[in-house]
Design a protein around this nucleic acid. Sequence first.
DNA 1: CGAGAAGTACACTGATCGGTGAACCATGCC
DNA 2: GGCATGGTTCACCGATCAGTGTACTTCTCG
Lengths: 202, 202
Amino acid sequence: MHETRTVTPAGRRILEAAEELFYGRGIAAVGVDLIAERSGVTKRTLYNQFGSKDALVASYLAERDRRWRSLVRQEVESSPDPVEAVTAPFGALRTWSRTSTRGCAFINALAELPDPSLPAYRVVTEQKRWLLELFTDLATAAGCAGPDTLAVRLLVLHEGALAMQPLPFDALTQSTELARELVRAGLGTREPGPDARRRLAR
Amino acid sequence: MHETRTVTPAGRRILEAAEELFYGRGIAAVGVDLIAERSGVTKRTLYNQFGSKDALVASYLAERDRRWRSLVRQEVESSPDPVEAVTAPFGALRTWSRTSTRGCAFINALAELPDPSLPAYRVVTEQKRWLLELFTDLATAAGCAGPDTLAVRLLVLHEGALAMQPLPFDALTQSTELARELVRAGLGTREPGPDARRRLAR
DNA sequence: CGAGAAGTACACTGATCGGTGAACCATGCC
DNA sequence: GGCATGGTTCACCGATCAGTGTACTTCTCG
């Protein structure tokens, strides 16, 4: 029942080109003509598949979100224990940074698309909310005290490291280290909940 | 010897309009014609004053940086003691957020201007470096252990809260609270240095 | 008086923007 | 055969883009 039918082969190539160009140069700076040329496709096909540039932008962000969540899930599930799992997204971020060196694609998109009515805006807020809830679940499962507060703090550390990525400072190392310390400091004061790593569905 | 002569009255109005539009809508999304119209000035005057859009963008960022540093200095100097002063930039951020709700103008600019050769890029890196060094100085002055490490962590918290600003999460409160805890935890293990609040010149 | 600086008015450039219309072609499925 | 689907080719649209040239005005300062 896996519906790979929603996107055609040409659609995939368009999305790949759009992702590289939008992330690398900014959304407004990239024209649809360039995306069509890079993906070896006519502009007509691009519009037949996506309808508008706004819609293509939303698809680009949704696709990137999908890949990011997939990586995080993988990292969480391969964690040796529930405590390590809490900071697994920071490990994912390390991996992610090897190919993405221009900061957070979603924050960057918000910088260019201020209108909350745009479909892309919802994708961005959903992405951050997902990560916040994941942190909450993982912290609860590990038995951390104050999982809600801890989750917000971990999210801030995560976003901070991501935001500073384009600058010549190594923020990720300290961010990860501090995150681990926070998790360790919150242990033992509460009963561990059920292993949240099993609740990663969707 | 204060040289306010570098910018004419028309130049000021152009900068004000540019700041509002660039920050609010994104740099690439705003044309020079619109800026000229909003500032009640001819496009010719704009180009006579700034030479190019790239140069205007750099001026916009530099001016915003100047105002931001001024606010931070003010907040630091009005801190009751050196320990409070370390987290003073978080107080400044609280004030700043009342009028700036679209995240960090500098990070946002980087999202649109990937080319490090652009004059704006240097403005952004300098801005973050300044804040990092300020944190280091303040932490040293307050007698915190490991001031360099602490400064990086405070910077990450600061940037994280700023990056999440456009989203519907209250990150600043937790970010500030955690920053205070970090500073408190690092106290007493080291001799306080000279009061860094006196070394804010420039 | 005269010079220079700041600003206005306005026309104009070539390029690029997002988006459309219409005709045509290939594949595969009923 | 018939017909829908996915794709191509290509010409075209009005709007906007950053940036320039030229001539005129207005003000200040020496």
